[in-house]
Amino acid sequence: MSSVKKIRVLRGSPEEVGEQLQENLERMLESTRRWAEILTFDPEPETGLTPKNIVWRKNKAKLYRYVNGEIKYRTPVLFIYALINKAYILDLTPGMSLIEHLVKEGFDVYLLDWGEFQWEDRDLRYDDFICDYIARAVRKVCQISGTESLSMAGYCMGGTMTTMYAALYSRPEVKNIVYIAAPIDFENAGLSSIWLKPPGFDPDKVADTYKLVPKEFIDTGVKMLKPVNNFWGTYTRLWKNIEEGVSIRSWKALNKWVNDNVHFPGAAYRQWIKEFYQENKLVKNEFRIKGQRVELKNIKSSLLVLAGENDHIVLPHQTKAILELSSSQDKEFHLFPVGHGGLVFGSVARNQVYPTIANWLAARS
């Protein structure tokens, strides 16, 4: 669709101004009608379109390997995403996809997609996700790629889980880690710390009541951290896109993802709220996976840490903490003028974040 023309400044006699005003109004009404038709009748845009193959499965989880004509960099890259929402935000639409960008740059890219948790998954803990899913996926990636090391990239909670894995497992070698808005230090998590502070908020009661915490419960809680922006801003951004001539497909794809949530296994939810947000065990070296202490000093990988200065879900200092807590010598921190999603979607992501990640990995792969 062509860009919407800007309204012209009105000049001239009252009659001429009236004619110009009428013309502008007609143009706006026509544009509004056309966009309304697209919003109402067009199907939801397809997402996750970068060609891929399923190379391993466990339960609902799938390990994807993305098809690439030529692999320039031998070290494979494994993406780990959070347990809520869907992983296709990393491969949203053609031209707006971090995975697509890395594949085109010649990287051997994998993604662990958790799938949609159901009632039988209610007792899954981080012990299971780290040892039975991520650890096995890592071995499979290295086996297929024929390497003894890999790079890992974690977005949001996926970065937290990547940290747990890297602190516990020395082989295969985690050569590089890319952190994308990943919470590590939960001491001051902004409004989340206030809302989830004990004894006012009881995660045991939530987990015991629901067993499998409904996606609607999680979605509402996250959106209420910034209700005006999340409930009304969605549509103000739409009208801004209309004015600027931005593709409606991009807006619809992002809106689809924002509302495409998954249930949260109650056992993992209990750990996430109590042991991370309320007790901050990870940075205190008190968090345990199957009885083994997770010590962040064990991490010696090269680190690329990315944060959004407007992120209200994961504050920049929460991610930056890994720079001091690990034993890594090769480490970089980049702060971008975006929110949580802006690190993987939008013009800043496409023009700044994607190249930053690609260039950093290329120099270490």
Score class of each variant (00 low, 15 high):
residue 8 R to S: 04
residue 10 L to V: 12
residue 12 G to W: 10
residue 28 M to R: 11
residue 33 R to A: 09
residue 43 P to H: 09
residue 44 E to C: 09
residue 44 E to F: 10
residue 50 T to W: 06
residue 51 P to V: 07
residue 52 K to R: 15
residue 55 V to P: 09
residue 56 W to Q: 12
residue 60 K to W: 11
residue 60 K to R: 14
residue 64 Y to I: 14
residue 69 G to H: 13
residue 73 Y to D: 13
residue 82 A to V: 05
residue 85 N to H: 08
residue 89 I to Q: 00
residue 93 T to S: 10
residue 94 P to F: 04
residue 96 M to N: 13
residue 104 K to L: 11
residue 107 F to H: 08
residue 115 G to P: 10
residue 117 F to Q: 01
residue 126 Y to S: 07
residue 135 A to L: 03
residue 138 V to R: 02
residue 152 M to S: 05
residue 165 Y to N: 08
residue 168 L to C: 09
residue 171 R to N: 12
residue 176 N to E: 14
residue 176 N to D: 15
residue 179 Y to M: 14
residue 180 I to T: 08
residue 180 I to R: 03
residue 181 A to F: 00
residue 198 P to M: 06
residue 200 G to P: 05
residue 200 G to R: 08
residue 204 D to P: 00
residue 207 A to N: 02
residue 207 A to F: 00
residue 216 E to L: 10
residue 229 N to S: 15
residue 234 T to S: 08
residue 236 T to V: 11
residue 242 I to F: 14
residue 244 E to T: 14
residue 246 V to N: 11
residue 262 V to I: 11
residue 263 H to N: 14
residue 279 E to A: 00
residue 284 K to S: 00
residue 287 F to P: 03
residue 292 Q to M: 06
residue 292 Q to C: 06
residue 295 E to T: 13
residue 297 K to F: 01
residue 299 I to M: 07
residue 305 V to S: 05
residue 314 V to P: 00
residue 315 L to S: 01
residue 318 Q to D: 04
residue 318 Q to L: 04
residue 333 F to G: 02
residue 336 F to E: 01
residue 347 S to A: 09
residue 351 N to M: 10
residue 352 Q to Y: 02
residue 363 A to K: 12
